[in-house]
Each structure stands twice: as structure tokens, then as C-alpha cells.
């Protein structure tokens, strides 16, 4: 049996008395492009943050390619939501991308020529090389997103966790980002994406995790992205969505 890219078992997260994630068991095979979907407050962001050890968990264990997450950090890249950092921070695009290499650099060592070159290559992959020396506050939302992607690409990881990478980007950028994610999958990487646009799920992804505090379903697109499962995850809201969709011309 081939090793799973991600094994999560019994993951539970609670704020105060309210569980945000309840007893999540999740397995993801390698080389899939996975959408984590679910209604607002379903715990999508919490799921990837708790997998990455960014928020305390009540219970649960995480294995990446068969070994505990803590031993596998170098195999993991993370693209946080764009709004989580201060884009007026006094630094350049190239500098932000270079931060992706701090993990391999280790303590005290400074990035040098080699790191700059790797960062430039990552910027070329997202077509941002012309912006390398721009101050980051001069970027549009889509450009900021591509800089964050480049910072993850430079990590040369096996598994990528991305929190809403399509949030607030224009249609052109969305296509370019999607192209990049599919390239990663073709290269055998596993890409886990928090996504909220149900319409584009079947077109963009080949694996789906449906979440609503509990795990509703997890598996290949055709098996999981069904009306019954969506109704289970979204409840009445999904029926409303459908009704609205039917009412549209």
C-alpha cells in the first residue's frame, strides 16, 4: 500500500466550551488537488492551522507521508490567507519570497546569492519576476497572492496547504494560479486548498473534503461531490442556494 500524503486521526479543536473540529479522521493520497469545503464557521481554516500546529488541539495526531508532522516540516509548505500579514511592512517582494528558505537556512545564517536565485526562480513561476524589488505595499491583491505562492514554491515541499488562494483575485490571476496548482499536482505534489466557491470545485479539483465541524465526506470528486453530501454539510443553506440558482435566468 503506498504511503498517504496526509493522515489525520481523532483531531479535535475547541475554543472555550465549543468544539470547532470534532474527531476528524482524514486520509489523503499523494498527488491530488484537494478542496476543503464547507459552510462559514465549518472549521476549514482551523483544520489546516491545527494540522500545521498553529493552534492548540485537544486531541489528534497528524502524519505527513507516514511520519509525524514535526519530523516532516521540510516537506510542508504553507500559504496563509493574504490578510494575515501587514502589507505595509518595509520589505521587498524578493525578500518575502526568500523567507520561504529560512527553514532550510536554519538559525543565524543569512540568505545569500543562492537563496536570491532560488527566490527569483519561484517569482518567475508566478510571473512576478519584474516586481522582485518592489515594495510589497505597491502590489494588488492578486499580486500579493502570487508572492505568497512563490514563497511556498521556494520551499520545494511535497505537500502544500493553502488558505483561500483564490480570495479576491481577478479572473486572469485565478486561471494562472489554477494552472500552477495543476502543475504541482502533475509533478506529484499534494495540494490542499481551502476553497469557498462551490461552483468551481468540480472543474478545479479532483479530491474533496467536506467539513462542518465534523468530517462529512472525504474522497475523489465524483464520489464525494454529490447533492446528498452537500446537503449534509450545508444543510438548509444548500437548498436555498439551489433554489436561487434555479431562479436565475
Amino acid at each position: 500500500m503506498p504511503t498517504n500524503a496526509l493522515d489525520v486521526s481523532d483531531l479535535t479543536v475547541a475554543y472555550k466550551e465549543k468544539p470547532v473540529l470534532w474527531d476528524i479522521d482524514l486520509t489523503v493520497p499523494p498527488a491530488v488537488l484537494l478542496a476543503v469545503i464547507g459552510p462559514n464557521g465549518a472549521g476549514k481554516t482551523t483544520l489546516i492551522k491545527s494540522i500545521l500546529g498553529l493552534i492548540p488541539t485537544v486531541a489528534g495526531s497528524v502524519r505527513i507521508y507516514g511520519r509525524p508532522y514535526k519530523e516532516q516540516r521540510k516537506q510542508v509548505a504553507y500559504v496563509p490567507q493574504r490578510g494575515t500579514v501587514d502589507w505595509d511592512f518595509p520589505t521587498s517582494v524578493l525578500d518575502v519570497v526568500t523567507m520561504g528558505l529560512y527553514g532550510t537556512l536554519g538559525w543565524l545564517k543569512r540568505p545569500g546569492k543562492k537563496e536570491k536565485k532560488l527566490a527569483m526562480e519561484a517569482l518567475e513561476m508566478v510571473a512576478m519576476q519584474d516586481y522582485a524589488h518592489r515594495q510589497i505595499s505597491q502590489l494588488s491583491g492578486g499580486q500579493q497572492q502570487r508572492v505568497f505562492l512563490a514563497r511556498a514554491l521556494v520551499q520545494q515541499a511535497e505537500i502544500y496547504f493553502m488558505d483561500e488562494p483564490f480570495q479576491g483575485v481577478d479572473a486572469m490571476t485565478e486561471k494562472a494560479i489554477l494552472r500552477l496548482l495543476k502543475d504541482l499536482r502533475s509533478a506529484g505534489k499534494t495540494v490542499i486548498v481551502v476553497h469557498h466557491d462551490l461552483q468551481t470545485v468540480p472543474e478545479y479539483f479532483d479530491w474533496v473534503t467536506l467539513l462542518n465541524t465534523r468530517l462529512v465526506a472525504n474522497g475523489p470528486m465524483e464520489e464525494v461531490f454529490t447533492e446528498a453530501n452537500l446537503e449534509k454539510a450545508y444543510g438548509g443553506r444548500f437548498m436555498q442556494l439551489k433554489a436561487t440558482a434555479r431562479a436565475l435566468p
Binding site: G53, L54, R73, T84, V96, G103
Partner: peptide
Amino acid sequence: FDRDFGTTMGY
């Protein structure tokens, strides 16, 4: 700049 990102890299 990005504390969480640093955590994921093991710092």
C-alpha cells in the same frame, strides 16, 4: 512579518 509562517518552518 509572519509569525505563523515561521512556526510552520519549525522556528
